[in-house]
Design a binder for these strands. Structure first.
Lengths: 205, 205
DNA sequence: ACCAAAATCATCCTTTCGGATGAGAAGGCC
DNA sequence: GGCCTTCTCATCCGAAAGGATGATTTTGGT
């Protein structure tokens, strides 16, 4: 991956410069600094950053949380609050925008960088998350008789949409074995069919 | 929501106590403190915490990142690293476990609390967002021939785990009609079975 | 060594599902 | 009125899935 472009929204030029200095020495680059909401939206459109760092108070009518709300809803970019506001009211408003992180000023450089990196990594994963995996532990939490490892394997293949024969081939056993496992799965889940089983475990995942 | 239960994994009793004190005065409660990985796993099973705070170095063979990996894969709980390790190698290992946050020691109480709160809020949202409603628009985005309304109704019943007969009853039509719809759905989705259809649309939702 | 649980395989039989195909009725559109 | 799509229903057939039951082997624990 090449350089990662960060938009900084911060009305204090000194702090903005501080953040900029923090970021520019790694694989990050500051794509721009916005001192007010209008500038922020402009830069979001034109500079297409990969992530955003936001101060909350901007000395304007609209604050960082309002910007974040738009970023979350329309741009789907990861963003982090970097602010001195840690009061309940602000935090409650802020968390409703689903930020990737919240670093409190005065900030430690390491906190900012690690938060940012994790935000980007999590976001990248979410984009490519094409393989929803089942969890044996989670399923067994809801069952009086837990599924065995092997039964769980079968369930996963079922989840992938495989037929009994395909499972048998994939797991190097006979179809009869698969059928036995499936019968036991149905018993434990108390369902009569594949789709019913999948529908039942869906909410547990 | 009542009290939120946090598991703290930290081998230094002083820091553990420090964290505990931080947490106990708000709507959080420490469900337990684990000084080593074995204890951590035990408490995960027995205490069923809502979130985990992890130190990385535990003076054991397995470290906090190993624990986090299991938490992520099997327990699907939000967790935060609270550690003095901020070197590249550790961070690279840590971010692969998809933590909700990463707070660097010495930690500011506010950083920990805000990170934790946001982690929990984001996680709660993810859970409710996993709601069992399909979207016709979303599905049709991926299809050359879009599903009709009626076919979508059938697909939803399929998703709920119903049999053809159950669908027929619920939709006040004959089983034959259901079968025709299903045949058309399979054509459009290019799949041969119920489970394959569900597996295919899963990633689109 | 022994017991219990899990995993393996099998057979017989019934139900459900899926594929192929045709066809009538209702509604929108030019 | 013709044309197309959707929804409706049907029959026939073969494939897949599900229920019941019993047996052998592996494995882990006391």
């Amino acid at each position: 991956m090449s350089e990662i472009r960060i938009l900084v929204v911060e009305d204090d030029p000194l702090i903005a410069a501080d953040i900029e200095q923090c970021l520019n020495n790694i694989d990050f680059r500051v794509s721009g600094v916005a001192y007010d909401p209008d500038e922020a939206f402009l830069q979001l459109k034109t500079n297409t950053p990969d992530a955003v760092i936001l101060d909350i108070s901007l000395g304007e009518e609209k604050d960082g949380i309002d910007i974040a709300s738009i970023i979350h809803q329309e741009y789907h970019l990861p963003f982090i609050y970097l602010t001195s506001h840690a009061d309940r009211g602000t935090l409650d408003r802020a968390k409703k925008t689903f930020p990737s992180g919240y670093v409190v000023k005065p900030f430690d450089e390491k906190d900012l960088l690690t938060s940012l990196e994790i935000a980007l990594y999590n976001h990248a994963q979410k984009q490519t998350a094409a393989n929803p995996q089942l969890s044996l532990v989670l399923i067994n939490k809801h069952l009086p008789k837990p599924l065995s490892e092997r039964e769980f394997d079968v369930l996963q293949h079922m989840y992938e949409g495989k037929t009994n024969n395909q499972m048998a081939e994939a797991m190097f056993v006979s179809v009869n074995t698969i059928k036995t496992h499936i019968a036991n799965i149905y018993l434990k889940l108390d369902v009569p069919s594949r789709t019913a089983a999948l529908a039942k475990i869906r909410t547990w995942q």
